[in-house]
Amino acid sequence: MTEVTQPALTIDALGKKCPIPIIMLAEQINYVPLNAVVAVLADDPAAYTDVPAWCRLKSHRHVGSYELPEGGWAIHVRRNY
């Protein structure tokens, strides 16, 4: 298994419905340095599709989505610019 980069910032969007997790991500990704990873914790099923789609639209990198033991995912995004 490849090493998962430690996130520089974790956004807790658990219990929040889309588009709120995406709005939080868009706001806060600029708080981390270039190439750092932001983890979005979300349990709205829409976020599982929408965070990677946002990365594609905004030219950031979706690193991976990891299931959380209590339900939902930690969705890792690398800041590209």
């Binding site: 889309c18 599709t49 929408d50 990677p52 789609a53």
Partner: peptide, 13 residues
């Protein structure tokens, strides 16, 4: 979200 949008990997909201 719609299974169609999910399968395509496009924005669902």
């Amino acid at each position: 979200p719609s299974h169609v949008l999910e399968a395509m990997g496009v924005l669902t909201h």
